[in-house]
Structure formats: C-alpha cells, structure tokens
Amino acid sequence: MEIDPFIFRLSIFILSIFVGYYVVWSVTPSLHTPLMSVTNAISSVIIVGAIIASLAGTNLSVFNQSSIFGFLAIVLAAINIFGGFLVTQRMLAMYKKKKKDKK
C-alpha cells in the first residue's frame, strides 16, 4: 500500500504553515509593511503555473483559449514580482540610514 503523493504535499503545506507562524512572529513590528510587500512578491511565484499554462498552445496557434489566460496571468504576476521586490527594497533602504552616525 503506497502513500498518496497528496499526503506528502499536505505534509509540506502543514509544516510550512508552522514555519511561517514562527518566522512571522519574529518579524519586528516596524517592518510589518515591508513584510506585506515581500509576501506579495513571493506569492507571485504562481507565475510558474502561468508559464506552463501559456505554453498550452502549439506552434501553429500560440494563442488558444487556455494559453491566453496563462499570458494574462504572467503579466499580472510579473507586475507583482518586480513591483513587490523593488518596492520592498526601496522601503528597506530607508531603514538603513542613521543609527550609527546619530549616536
């Protein structure tokens, strides 16, 4: 009797929730806004699914019903990836300043 692969994925999922729980509690409250923007960016890893979906077409017809949704999803996810990481970078750069030269 083999274990259903779904159970493995479920295990990964549950364990990740626990990892997330402990990691996020250790995030300092002053960085809660960057936390939101970076989680935004990483959840756009959904682009992986979008890429596979967009290549559903053939060489003759790149755009079919299902690949069009894939392409749209690529655009949306890419906005988020670039926008999310860059805006986080921008915010975190502001936290860098001072500290040393003030005291």
């Binding site: 990740s16 996020v24 935004n40």
Partner: peptide, 17 residues
C-alpha cells in the same frame, strides 16, 4: 499544479497574513 514552491509560499503568506 503539484508544485512545492507554490505550496510552501502559499502556506507562508497565508500564515503571515
């Protein structure tokens, strides 16, 4: 999609929020 990266990330972001 049986994609580990997406499952891990989803769980992280979900619990973070």
């Amino acid at each position: 999609l049986e994609n580990t990266a997406l499952i891990i990330t989803g769980a992280l972001v979900g619990s973070s929020g």
